[in-house]
Simulated scan of single mutants.
Amino acid sequence: MQITWYGHSTFGVDVDGESLLIDPFFDNPKTDTDPEELDPDYVLITHGHADHIGDVDRFRDSHFVATPEIISYLTDEYSIQNGTGMNLGGTFETEEAFVTMVRADHTNGLDTDYGATGGMPAGFVVSDTKPTQVADEETQTFYHAGDTSLQTEMREVIAPYLEPDAAAVPIGDHYTMGPMQAAVATDWLDVEYAIPMHYDTFPAIEQDVADFEREVDATGSVADVVALDGDETLDLADELGY
């Protein structure tokens, strides 16, 4: 599994040659990637805020996965052709991956004249094997937390049952967790790799990643903080040794 950060909360995930793109928003200072260069098989949307769906129109031929409310909105407003609506706790199976939608504590308003919402905001856990209660040591699993505050579901559900190896957690504060709460989330998730996201895009969320690193160390977590540069890739298989 290869995980590429395109800045803000935008990630590409490659699972055995199948490509997934999460929250396409390339109008951020961390990336030089032209979204026209990408051709993802699937696009996963955590919620409907503009800084998470800003470039969905570039990927109309991809298959979208989001809440039913978001799928309806993107179909009406952006003319997407293929979409699957799902909800929290569900798992969507692609040819190579299993995508489980989990809770995020945030808001989910849509840019409409009538104040519509996109249902519950979400995060996604992407795995190369089906989630079961029987642990598979060679499974590769990535958790994209979406825009969220600290929540006990990370400790009580996601960590013990979905067992992510790497997690992308927002550290920007103001709209999401800041470095301290993101560090506690990292500890609760018991991941090996923590990737900071959702920072330095706007003045309100400017952060020094070193603050996050210090907070992770203070929790006693064994996680390595992997502060990716924009457009940089983490090869999870290589890091895990399989």
Score class of each variant (00 low, 15 high):
residue 217 D to V: 00
residue 213 E to A: 02
residue 188 W to S: 15
residue 176 T to H: 03
residue 200 D to N: 15
residue 83 G to I: 08
residue 56 V to D: 09
residue 186 T to A: 09
residue 1 M to K: 07
residue 182 A to D: 12
residue 81 Q to E: 15
residue 20 L to G: 14
residue 146 G to L: 01
residue 177 M to P: 00
residue 30 K to W: 12
residue 242 Y to W: 14
residue 58 R to C: 10
residue 118 G to S: 08
residue 207 Q to T: 08
residue 153 E to Q: 04
residue 45 I to M: 08
residue 180 M to A: 12
residue 113 D to F: 12
residue 160 P to W: 02
residue 11 F to T: 02
residue 150 L to C: 03
residue 22 I to Y: 13
residue 117 T to F: 10
residue 236 L to H: 11
residue 79 S to K: 15
residue 95 E to H: 08
residue 65 V to E: 05
residue 59 F to K: 09
residue 68 P to D: 14
residue 177 M to K: 06
residue 213 E to T: 04
residue 139 T to G: 06
residue 213 E to K: 09
residue 29 P to G: 15
residue 15 V to A: 11
residue 107 T to Y: 10
residue 167 A to T: 14
residue 242 Y to L: 13
residue 233 T to K: 06
residue 132 T to E: 06
residue 44 L to Q: 14
residue 196 P to E: 11
residue 212 F to I: 01
residue 44 L to N: 14
residue 27 D to N: 07
residue 184 V to R: 12
residue 72 S to G: 15
residue 97 A to G: 08
residue 152 T to D: 09
residue 194 A to E: 10
residue 183 A to T: 05
residue 99 V to F: 03
residue 65 V to C: 06
residue 8 H to V: 00
residue 38 L to D: 13
residue 238 D to R: 13
residue 14 D to A: 07
residue 73 Y to P: 07
residue 64 F to E: 03
residue 55 D to L: 04
residue 218 A to V: 01
residue 84 T to D: 06
residue 222 V to C: 02
residue 11 F to L: 04
residue 113 D to P: 13
residue 30 K to D: 13
residue 201 T to H: 04
residue 153 E to Y: 05
residue 242 Y to E: 15
residue 104 A to L: 03
residue 210 A to W: 04
residue 120 M to F: 13
residue 129 T to Y: 00
residue 240 L to M: 14
residue 53 I to P: 05
residue 43 V to F: 02
residue 234 L to F: 13
residue 217 D to F: 01
residue 115 G to W: 10
residue 71 I to W: 04
residue 208 D to I: 01
residue 231 D to P: 00
residue 110 L to K: 13
residue 57 D to R: 11
residue 83 G to F: 07
residue 153 E to S: 09
residue 128 D to V: 00
residue 66 A to N: 05
residue 145 A to P: 01
residue 185 A to M: 15
residue 14 D to G: 01
residue 157 V to Y: 08
residue 91 T to F: 11
residue 188 W to T: 09
residue 105 D to W: 03
residue 86 M to E: 07
residue 219 T to A: 04
residue 122 A to E: 06
residue 62 S to W: 00
residue 139 T to N: 09
residue 107 T to S: 14
residue 219 T to F: 05
residue 220 G to I: 11
residue 120 M to Y: 12
residue 187 D to N: 12
residue 91 T to C: 15
residue 113 D to S: 15
residue 38 L to N: 10
residue 83 G to A: 13
residue 55 D to P: 02
residue 67 T to P: 00
residue 114 Y to V: 12
residue 63 H to G: 00
residue 103 R to M: 07
residue 46 T to Q: 13
residue 101 M to T: 07
residue 103 R to P: 01
residue 238 D to W: 03
residue 150 L to Y: 12
residue 119 G to F: 08
residue 216 V to G: 02
residue 15 V to T: 13
residue 47 H to D: 13
residue 185 A to W: 14
residue 235 D to E: 11
residue 229 D to H: 05
residue 77 E to F: 01
residue 12 G to C: 05
